[in-house]
Amino acid sequence: MPTVTMHVFRGDARGGDFKEYRVEADPGMVVLDLIHRIQATQATDLAVRWNCKAGKCGSCSAEIDGKPRLMCMTRMDLFNEGEPISVAPIRGFPAIRDLVTDVSYNYVKAKQVPPLRIKPPEPDGTYRMMQEDIDRIQEFHKCIECFLCQDVCHVIRDHEENKRAFAGPRFFIKLASLDMHPLDTVDRSAFVKDAAGVGLCNITKCCTEVCPEHIHITDNAIIPLKERMADEFFDPVVWLLRKFRSKKKQPA
């Protein structure tokens, strides 16, 4: 078995540094396997989050050789033999310890999103939805909340001050999925504009590039949200029409 050199960040909120570990890699291993092996044999207190080890729970996000990835889905054979591999915590969030960061920002934002409020059922008491009407939302529902999109988003990565009024790509797809939900009755346009701050996004697509679920975050969620916002708030014709027509959806 080849021995791999790993440079793993060790430290906490006060600071830290990369520490070198040399560890054996078996065929087919992923980065998380090596982190576990270091934990079991060399550094039992090496802090790391993980759960499913199959790319389904989104717990083991890290920056591997500088690239945001899930450790459980990053195979060792991706790297050139002999070269050291660096594993750092996702930088967009405050450090807790080693590879573990404080992602509570995301849980705060999650709670702010105005929830689904559904229309009354059909006369037989059920709801009917056609597959073609939910295909796009099902794409958004694939989100595993790894928060890699939040990690790379320029608006907040190096701008702590923007976090207050910016929800980030994860919650843009959440907002888009609610808006496109066939049963929903809530108008979230003011929330999307002000509290979620979709206008701050300058469509660099970094979020889409790192999404392990390959969700088209920018094209399918953010751009439609931006277009709607432009129509709602900045199109004079729509503005005038709105003055005279009652809106279909209720404000959040």
Binding site: D12, T44, D45, L46, A47, V48, I96, R97, D98, V100
Partner: peptide, 14 residues
């Protein structure tokens, strides 16, 4: 036996 301190220490949790 557990190494290190109480803050986010997977060895201790295990």
């Amino acid at each position: 036996r557990v190494d290190g301190h109480r803050q986010y220490n997977p060895g201790w949790h295990t």
